[in-house]
Each structure stands twice: as structure tokens, then as C-alpha cells.
Design a protein around this nucleic acid. Structure first.
Lengths: 196, 196
DNA sequence: CACATTACCGCACCGAGTGTCAAATTACGA
DNA sequence: TCGTAATTTGACACTCGGTGCGGTAATGTG
């Protein structure tokens, strides 16, 4: 069969992630060393780096999965106008079952509140932007690195990040509503309550 | 007078920056160690870190100056509608005399092409976004951390970054034109050549 | 029981960044 | 002119993230 030869793995990405997030929540990200995590998992420090490229990556979990969802959700809006489809795609790809919202909030609080992770996010989000840019370019009959698709990618990312920041900071606003509002404002060119 | 007691500085931020950028251009950012830079400047490694917080910061130069210009340029557009004033502010704050364009291009090529610097840029750009968000919030009579000002900050940043990326990648497009086009598209909600 | 396979571990090493403390170099006042 | 305060430098030791390497442990298979 697929997996059955050699020494069995002594841990999993999921376990490492779980243990690490607990430590981060307890002592903070910077104050938790990689050795601490390795010890808590009960595994060698060197082994950790075979499961995750960096300490930063541990905080991010399975980002490929997020990307896949985004791709699917964007494809769903095929009939609709561009910016409406974009809004739909981003909003729906961020709809989580209620029991997962706490975890998401913890993770996003960690990420948006830690300088090292904010910096690292630039790299993760580059992929996210690329997905949007490629999708927009295809719809507009342009190349993904043309100006407008790129701007759309950046603007969409920005709208999503602003929504997440706001969501993390406040108690009573819901993520879906914030995302929706942000993308409505974006699609209008911020003309709604435009100016004073 | 003001400055005259104690041992005189043996170098300046400008000199360090100049020497470091030359090394980065020659060997690449990652391959240049802080010790290399210190040696080239003729100064102790520890001294470098008194002039710059990190190796990354050396590549960024005087960002406070950029921020000041942005603030001023935004204030200039007071009569105009919000998104027009925003476009004016960002475009004008990025207008450089021809003899400085080469330096700017070199720096932006370095930054956009180096993972560590891309990551670090997230932190630098947070200040930039904050300036835009505060300005937009004031004009709209909202708080800087309300959703819309935040989205505007992110969207403006994204439009500028997309323009810079495009500018760095191409030979014959000019930065001002790209910025202007990006902000026109943004202000229209990407309705111009909207869809296929 | 050998053997290939797969994963683990420890160790040595590198580079970025920090804390500390003594030494160097200046201005100024007695 | 000599001491003293002020300011910067520089060397050293240290922490932490991350990598390369070489050996070892645990599995399935012939």
C-alpha cells in the first residue's frame, strides 16, 4: 500500500500545531522558543523543521486548504459581474462553522498581533493575491501581471485583511458581515457615504 | 552648541546605506552578511545596529521622509472629492526628480525581489496605511479604525504596490502613469473595462 | 535474519540581533 | 593644563532561528 515501510512518524503536523498554538496563547509567540515546542511535543528540535519550514509557518496551519476554497468560491460566481463575483468568492470562502470560529479568532489574533507573523503574512498572502489576480485576469481577458488584475488582487486582499483586523478587535461584529460590507464599499469605489 | 561633546560618530546612516546597497546589488541581499557591511564601512558590527534596527531596515532608507511627503500631498487635495484627493496624494508623493529614479528603481527591485524584504515591508507599510486611514477617517468623520477608512488604507496601499511591481518589472512604463491608472480603476470600483 | 526504507536524533555550525562594559575621543570648566 | 562629563565605539558573550550531516531506531519485506 501507500504508507508502510520504515520507521513510523512520531508526530503529525496537526499535533505540532495544536501544542504550539497552546504555548503561543500561554506565553506569547516571541517568548516561546522552538525548543520549547519540540520539548512539549516530545520530539527533537530538528524534527520540527521537517514538519514546518519555520516557526512562523506553524502559526499558519494548512494554508493550501484556504487557497483551494478561495479558488472554488471564486469559480462559483461565474454568471455575475466581476466585483459581485469577487465579493461572493471571498465572503463564502471565509464562512466557517460556528465551532471553528473560536479557533480562527485565536489564530488571527495571534497573527495580526505579532510583528514577526505580520511580516511573514506578506509571503503567505502573495499566493492569495495571485489566485485572485489570475481569476480576474481570466475574466477580463488580460494577463495576470497586467496592472488591473494585480490591483484587484491587492485591493481584495486589503479588504479582507481590514475586515479580519476589525473582526479580531471587536466583539459583536461578525466576519461575514464585515467582509461583505468591505467588498461593497470597494466595488462602489467608496462612493457610498463618500465624503463629508 | 547643540552637538559637541563626546566622541564624534565614525559614520552616518547615509554612508552605511550607500555601502550596503552596493553590496546588495553586487552579491545579493541574503549573501551579504551584516559583518560584510560593517567591514566595508569600516566599523564594528555592533555599531551598525545602533544606526539601523535590522539588516532589513538598511534596505529601506529614510522611510519617515516618505511618510511626511504622503501626509503633505494628501492634505493638498482638500477641495476635491475623496478618491480624487487620494489619487492626487499618492501620485504626487511618488513623483521623483529624474536623477533619483534609478536609485528608486534599484531599491524597489531589491525589495520586491527579496523574500525577507517583502516580509519586512508589511511592517513598514502598516505606517503608510495608517496615514491614509487617518486622513480618510478625518474626511469622512469616522474613526481611523472603522471599517471603511481601514479598507481605503489597504486598497490604496495595494494600488500603489501593484503599480510599483509593474514598474519594476517593465522597462517602458512610467511610475506616475501606472499609479494614476491604478487609482482611477480603484475609484471606479473597477467598472471601467469591467468584465468580459 | 538480512535488507531497504523511512523517520528520528544529536551535534556542529551559521547569521541576526541584544546586553554589557570598558575604552576612545571629544568639549569644557577649574 | 588637567580632570571630568558626555558620547560613541567596539569587543565579547549570549540567545534564538535555521541548516547540514552522519548515525541510529523502527518498521515491512524477501
Amino acid at each position: 500500500m501507500a504508507s508502510s515501510a520504515g520507521r513510523p512518524p512520531s508526530t503529525t503536523r496537526e499535533e505540532i500545531e495544536r501544542v504550539a498554538l497552546a504555548l503561543f496563547a500561554e506565553r506569547g509567540f516571541e517568548a516561546t522558543t522552538v525548543d520549547d515546542i519540540a520539548a512539549a511535543v516530545g520530539v527533537g528540535r530538528r524534527t520540527l523543521f521537517r514538519y514546518f519550514e519555520s516557526k512562523n509557518d506553524i502559526a499558519w496551519g494548512d494554508f493550501d486548504w484556504v487557497m483551494g476554497r478561495l479558488r472554488e468560491a471564486l469559480a462559483e460566481g461565474d454568471g455575475r459581474p466581476l466585483m459581485e463575483a469577487l465579493r461572493h468568492g471571498v465572503v463564502e470562502s471565509n464562512r466557517y462553522p460556528p465551532d471553528q470560529e473560536d479557533g480562527l479568532r485565536t489564530r488571527m489574533t495571534l497573527i495580526t498581533g505579532t510583528a514577526a507573523l505580520q511580516a511573514h503574512s506578506a509571503l503567505r498572502y502573495a499566493e492569495w493575491r495571485a489566485v485572485v489576480a489570475e481569476w480576474a485576469a481570466a475574466r477580463r481577458g488580460e494577463a495576470p501581471d497586467d496592472l488591473t488584475p494585480r490591483v484587484i488582487g491587492y485591493a481584495a486582499l486589503g479588504s479582507a485583511m481590514a475586515s479580519f483586523e476589525r473582526w479580531v478587535a471587536s466583539e459583536d461584529e461578525d466576519l461575514i458581515g464585515l467582509l461583505d460590507a468591505a467588498f461593497v464599499a470597494l466595488a462602489s469605489g467608496f462612493a457610498g457615504a463618500a465624503d463629508r
